[in-house]
Design a protein around this nucleic acid. Structure first.
Lengths: 210, 210
DNA sequence: AAACTTAATATACATAATGTTCATTAGTTT
DNA sequence: AAACTAATGAACATTATGTATATTAAGTTT
């Protein structure tokens, strides 16, 4: 049960070809209009081979999506303090957002198409859940489990922050990563902690309507 | 060129049936796996009738999406001051967010499915653009056209705020509109103006990592 | 290196959805 | 009532899907 599972290299190869073909096709057309035919053609495989591994298109899309996102979850997961370790690794929670940006940077072309409206809608919602968990974790570590007493319903707060994160990630991808992961992680954190207006330096120029 | 265009009532009827059928089907399965057959069947029309009006499924989806969203744009658009009017209607910009929530409330079941991952991905991106324009408008009215001098790149700022709005709208829809449009508009505005942490009352409890 | 095992291929086939055509019926407009 | 046009019904060619099977090729075991 160790790291290296003995998966037939032909299977690995086939999966790789299929996934690469998918990404290539997603650069040209949206996921809906891509057929299994096209995928296997571009992958230079038989259509029968596809059905040897996946039930249908949806199954294939979900599996390849999950592979990437499970890897992402691994990366972003805060290091669990080794119980035996004398050094408690009390690392900053927000480092995980840096790791998030770094991981996305590594797989930029995949994330870019999948988060665009050509990609699988489920990809976005899956990613949103992942980010939400992290946001939630950050908040709890700051304020405890306090259910209310907040000035605002918790789910609104969490949705606001989470979705803001996703939006910034998308715009970063669309700009072809104009800024470094570190820069993005820092800005994103201060946007949330200080609020967008204060970060922009517009604090006094705004009028509160209510 | 007045309001009422003389469109054959049969066409209106057909379109209505098709759109209703779509919404019904979207409650059960995702847009990808819905066929033209099913749509026309549920609408109790011939498949040939469908092709009388639309090129293909995508065309149909886009057209019905645009109908709804153009109506939304109309609603959300700030009233243009009548030049001749002695009373300049200097209404609060943020009223437009109230109108946004009210419109969505009226069409909740449609927005709910379309923004879910069963819906058209283009719907989300289209809506994001609409909201972005309004966010942009609000910002400019507060700070002028200032390109920089902001403490943060403008597109990051705009994306953060815009996407946060969409996220709050989605979570509101998913909760089946637990709160009133007015409540939502107010919370959303203060989240942005004051920042999520200040609104939540967590301002002092947080640690700034950088 | 030979024998075993399994992945990939080539091919064929049934099924389902698409998109088009056209004559006929039914509903609207003038 | 006549003219117009939308909707129907039916047929048809085309394309993608999903399944099955015998054969070839590649990887694993002994």
């Amino acid at each position: 049960m160790s790291k290296k599972s003995k998966v037939d290299p032909r299977i690995k190869r086939t999966n790789k070809y299929l996934r690469n073909a998918l990404v290539e096709l997603l650069k040209e057309k949206d996921v809906t209009s891509i057929t299994i035919q096209e995928i296997t053609e571009k992958a230079e495989l038989t259509r029968g081979t596809f059905y040897l591994h996946y039930q249908d298109k949806q199954d294939f899309l979900m599996q390849s999506m999950n592979e990437v996102l499970e890897e992402l979850i691994e990366q972003v997961k805060p290091k669990q303090n080794n119980e035996d370790s004398s050094e408690v690794e009390e690392k900053d929670e927000s480092v995980s957002f840096l790791k998030l940006f770094e991981f996305i940077y590594e797989h930029a072309s995949y994330f870019k198409v999948m988060l665009s409206d050509r990609g699988l809608p489920q990809f976005r919602s899956h990613m949103t859940e992942i980010v939400k968990k992290r946001v939630y974790g950050e908040l709890i570590s700051s304020i405890g489990e306090a259910e209310d007493g907040l000035g605002i319903p918790k789910d609104i707060l969490i949705s606001y922050i989470t979705s803001a994160h996703i939006g910034v990630i998308c715009s970063w991808l669309e700009s072809d990563m104009k800024f470094s992961p570190a820069f993005m992680a820092e800005k994103l954190t201060s946007l949330t902690l200080l609020g967008p207006m204060r970060v922009a330096g517009l604090e006094n120029k705004i009028k509160l309507p209510y």
